[in-house]
Amino acid sequence: MKSGIILSLFLITSCLAAFGQEAQPRKVKKQDAAVAEKGLVKVSIMYPFAEGKTFDMEYYETKHMPMVAKYLGSNLVRYTIEKGLASGIPNQPLPYMAIGTFYVKNLNEYQSAIAPNRDAIRADFVNYTNITPVILVSEVVR
């Protein structure tokens, strides 16, 4: 058991070192604590990497995500935008080019806000990507 834990820690440290990061605990900021609030609904919009696919991060950050955020109104707690850098396994392809995440208070309110705007949201895809996103709706449990 002890050797398994040591091996796991070694592998994690090795992976972090391979990507130029040190294995140090991260300080939790107040804004991070708010996002981790138990019970929030997390909507992750993931854009898988594939040869020939494109993604305009500037447009996504300055136009698309703010547009969708406005539709969500006061139900929206926060949203984040992530740019994929590497796979978690060295020498493997990047799994996602980007991930956008909305943290909302209520799933029904989210769906009610998105439904009448779905066509506008989808029509905007061509302005920043040729990727069909994968969407995961989940509940923050911790």
Rank of each mutant, 00 (worst) to 15 (best):
R142P: 02
L40K: 11
I89Y: 05
Q21L: 14
E82C: 12
Q24N: 14
A17M: 12
N108R: 08
L76P: 01
Y71P: 15
M57P: 10
S3F: 02
V43T: 09
V134M: 02
S112I: 04
E51S: 08
G4L: 06
K63R: 15
E109C: 05
Q111D: 06
I135K: 05
T13F: 03
S112H: 12
A34P: 14
I135G: 08
T62M: 10
A69P: 07
F55D: 07
P25W: 07
K63T: 15
Y96D: 02
V77A: 01
E61H: 15
P48E: 14
P48M: 14
L40R: 08
K38N: 13
Y59W: 04
Q31Y: 06
A113C: 05
R26M: 12
K105A: 02
Y103V: 02
N108D: 10
F125M: 04
I5H: 00
F19C: 12
R142N: 06
Y110A: 01
N108S: 10
Y60P: 13
P48L: 13
S87M: 00
L9E: 01
T132V: 08
Y128F: 03
M65Q: 15
E139S: 14
I114Y: 01
D32L: 08
A36R: 13
L76M: 08
A18W: 15
H64S: 06
Y79M: 02
I6A: 05
S14D: 04
Y71D: 14
I81R: 01
A34H: 08
I114G: 00
E139F: 09
L11G: 01
E61V: 15
Q111F: 04
Y110S: 03
P48V: 10
D124N: 03
F49W: 13
T80N: 09
P90N: 03
G52F: 10
Q111L: 07
S44T: 09
N106G: 02
S112G: 06
K83H: 13
R78M: 04
L94H: 08
Y103I: 00
G100M: 00
N75H: 03
A69E: 05
V41S: 01
A33K: 14
M1V: 07
Q21T: 15
V140G: 00
G73K: 04
A17R: 02
F19R: 07
G84H: 07
L76K: 00
N108T: 03
I121N: 06
T54M: 06
G39H: 10
E61S: 14
E61G: 14
D119R: 04
R142Q: 05
R122T: 08
